[in-house]
């Protein structure tokens, strides 16, 4: 009997644990992003594949190097760098020059994550930091859109993809306009059906809203995504756009259009819900979601930019520490 007991574990309680670990959660987020990426490739062809692969590979590489330099434990297998890379790729237009995409991946991880101290310490969503950087550095390339469902999409790259570093890519003649820009600048509304099923131009992950929603529901059901955040964003956007649309249907789009256009779906489901950069309290997550929703409506309707999701989320990320403090619970047995 005794030899067997040399194997006994000694611990301090609790002695049981829920099997859901960071690794399991992150892996499932990657799974959920796969259909979204596959749809992007289906809509935009090999260019899309190249962009997503580039951002993902460079994000993971950067993570690997930063961790090595830092002398820390390898954290690649926690999938979080992959998620950042895929998400960044999905926010970019399909014809985006690959060298810029690579730079975006590096910046996301180095600046968005490691500058703050690595996984768990960053305040801003790393993919959005990368995207914000690219927006500032390459304003033309990042707003050069290409039509979806091009005939040659599976055999040819958009020529701008292959632009050499630090040269201005030649702007292509066929560039389309995103539904939001069309509305903002040309007063042209795209029908909601096309939006939902990705039959529009836009960045890779902006199209195919229904797929994003379904993947989000999968994660929410598995309790790996806080449904409160997208639900409060949607609620605010629906309420306000319905009111404005009733006031002036010519000028203001319908709620459905608002929900399924631009990066709203991708942002609300996959970026605003990033655990590290969203509040820890339940009440806080509602406030945070409402804040993002309000900002999106304000930026889209009154701001100069057709797209407001990225700024809305980044801004709200910055307020999370304050939200956490404001929504702190009263400790049991104390007055406050």
């Amino acid at each position: 009997m005794n030899s067997k007991f040399l194997q006994l574990d000694l611990r301090s309680s609790p002695h049981v644990k829920r099997p859901v670990t960071v690794e399991v959660i992150m892996r499932n987020v990657v799974y959920a992003l796969i259909p979204v990426s596959v749809f992007a490739v289906y809509a935009f062809g090999i260019s899309a594949l190249a962009v997503i692969l580039t951002t993902t590979v460079f994000s993971i590489l950067t993570e690997y190097i930063m961790v090595k330099v830092d002398g820390r434990e390898i954290t690649i297998n926690d999938y979080s760098a992959a998620i950042t890379g895929i998400l960044l790729g999905l926010t970019l237009p399909p014809g985006f020059p690959l060298w810029m995409a690579a730079l975006g991946g590096i910046i996301s991880i180095a600046l968005g994550k490691y500058l703050f101290g690595g996984l768990g310490f960053n305040i801003y969503n790393p993919a959005l930091v990368g995207r914000g950087f690219l927006q500032a550095a390459f304003p033309v390339s990042i707003t050069t859109w290409h039509p979806a469902f091009n005939e040659n999409r599976f055999s040819e790259f958009f020529s701008s993809n292959l632009a050499a570093p630090f040269l201005k890519p030649t702007v292509e003649a066929v560039s389309g306009a995103t539904p939001l820009a069309a509305l903002k600048f040309e007063q042209k509304a795209t029908d909601a059906f096309s939006l939902m099923f990705g039959k529009t131009d836009g960045s890779l992950g902006e199209t195919g809203g229904i797929i994003i929603l379904l993947c989000g529901i999968y994660l929410a059901v598995r309790k790996m995504l806080d449904w409160r955040i997208p639900v409060s964003i949607f609620a605010v956007v629906i309420i306000f756009s319905t009111i404005f649309n009733m006031i002036n249907p010519e000028k203001f789009p319908s709620a459905l259009f608002m929900l399924f256009s631009g990066g709203l779906m991708l942002g609300a489901v996959f970026m605003a819900t990033d655990m590290v950069t969203s509040p820890v309290t339940k009440r806080g997550t509602y406030i945070y979601g409402i804040l993002i929703g309000l900002l999106i409506v304000i930026i889209r309707i009154w701001g100069g930019l057709p797209e407001g999701v990225m700024f809305a989320i980044l801004f709200s990320n910055g307020l999370v520490p304050v939200i956490n403090i404001l929504t702190k619970s009263r400790v049991y047995g104390t007055k406050k």
Binding site: V16, T21, V276, S278, P279, K282
Partner: peptide, 15 residues
Amino acid sequence: VIPRNQKVYPCIRCG
């Protein structure tokens, strides 16, 4: 039992 040598990650502020 909880697997031995389970890796400890940084807090991801999941709440």
